[in-house]
Design a protein around this nucleic acid. Sequence first.
DNA 1: CTGAAAGCGCTAACAG
DNA 2: CTGTTAGCGCTTTCAG
Lengths: 328, 328
Amino acid sequence: MAVTLADIADRVGVTQATVSMVLNKAPSSVRISERTRQKIFQVAEELNYTPSFVARSLVKGRTFTLGLLMGGIESAHHAEVTTLVLEEAEACGYRVLLAVTEWSHEKELECLDMLVHHRVDGILLGSHALRSGTRQYEYITSQHVPIVLLGYSEEFACAYSDWKPGMTQTLDFLTKKGYSRIGYLHSDTSGFTDFKQMDLKEVCQRFGLALKQYTCEPNQADCARCGRQFARTDQGPDVMIVQSDFMATGFMRGLYDQGLQVPRDLAVVGCDGTNAGEFFVPPITSIAQDCRVLIKGAVELLVEMIGNRNVPKRKVSVATRLIVRGSA
Amino acid sequence: MAVTLADIADRVGVTQATVSMVLNKAPSSVRISERTRQKIFQVAEELNYTPSFVARSLVKGRTFTLGLLMGGIESAHHAEVTTLVLEEAEACGYRVLLAVTEWSHEKELECLDMLVHHRVDGILLGSHALRSGTRQYEYITSQHVPIVLLGYSEEFACAYSDWKPGMTQTLDFLTKKGYSRIGYLHSDTSGFTDFKQMDLKEVCQRFGLALKQYTCEPNQADCARCGRQFARTDQGPDVMIVQSDFMATGFMRGLYDQGLQVPRDLAVVGCDGTNAGEFFVPPITSIAQDCRVLIKGAVELLVEMIGNRNVPKRKVSVATRLIVRGSA
DNA sequence: CTGAAAGCGCTAACAG
DNA sequence: CTGTTAGCGCTTTCAG
């Protein structure tokens, strides 16, 4: 089908091996007559030769492919994360096989299997699937499959945002503006610890502030429902911190449906600091992650682990900060 | 490193070939003693055997991987397209290698090369990179690499939305509501024909309506700039149709910045009918694509082309329709 | 019913 | 300086 090294070798009158060397090694490190080298390149060009990564992968035992597992990419933040992974991976010479799990625990495990079947060199876990006890967990730990989690983890190497600085800035800002009754809306479906929440709690305590918690599903529709309900019944918070900008948009829609105005009737602070938040009406005040740095750190860590499987499980932490826009 | 067929074969006391058969063929089609078959499965389980897709790919000449090339995935519509491709591909037994090009023509071509190197079985082109004259174009056409474009194309198999029905419904709706001065905001950077625009023009003509055109970059910031400028100076349109919901959000932000209200001062109609548009303030009236059907069609067409390279270049067309929400 | 052997396209030693 | 050889892990004939 496609043209192979052998085709070139035949035409030039040398062996595959020679062609392989000439084409792949640094010109200095391979000793060959200038005539032959020229001819090889010329014939490769003529024949439109394209090296097969799959053959190379087989022999090298590496695919130069990273697996990326995301719960979903419909929110601007997750789309940004995905894009950055793609960019950073490429910068390190890797391709990425993307799998989205729709936040289903079962599907996450299936996708993990798929990535292993494909022999990706490492896995970036954007959805927190891996718990001890599953076959996949055992496999990955026992085989030392390089893996880094996007988010905090005790068990694996990971890259996560440190929410404390951002939360501190936020409470500082809010209290100075006269807000004092803090609400926190988050989704509780994953079954995993919400470290963001823990940080917020801690910081609230430091400020001597109570925290009223709300939960809903991590989709816009349910956040909107929650917003409507809040508007109809709640007399508590004067500011709502929402787990993500994405969820904040849903929540705000619910508020509007009931005639509430943001920030006049209720201030809203999102999380993630997505670019898109700036274009919402009103623009969303948000505790921003430094995604670029975070993902760069994650990918580089993963690549390092691929290069040397004995590198200790590091944790990359990146500070957050408050971006004040219009919603608070 | 990983456990191979040979490892299993050794332990069971048969050959690789036998193990391969037993593990991969339908139980009915392979004649083997029940004892051996049991043992093979058992040992495979014990050893945590995971077949290597790369070895299989090499011998089969197929990778069971589709390449997906997108300009970007930050807009809700493109994220949805990507997600659907992932889903449909999986349904057909394919994985997907995603590449995003940031809408750069050069990068599109590089990514195309990368996908070919990786020997993807087929390519889904979400960003319109391929023009005759490029090396990649020659390669793909001459090698008959299965490819389907997302969007209309004369040269390649493609799946596209037919905007006429949606546009017709829209103009019908708008004129009945008393709007008559139609504007169309789109980005003109790609250098490719905007078939949406052509359909709109044609339908406007049928309605005896003039169409005033505006152009800007396809990012929210520039759309906002355009919105502000419109608000300050324009006395024309009473309704603006915008090329995408994503761009519409940016444009509306610009309008708000100048104190205009939607739809009171200017009605806005987006395109794509993204779910996210429903949660915007105000919710975006939009000409919706039926993404699910479109992508399903595209992937199935591609898979069919992979199975049989002689299948004629078909075009899949899916009708659009107006979704009335709050912005018009 | 099962085993042996060849080969997918490429790389890496080691000979010549 | 270049060629030969031996695999990487799997599938697929073809013998036995």
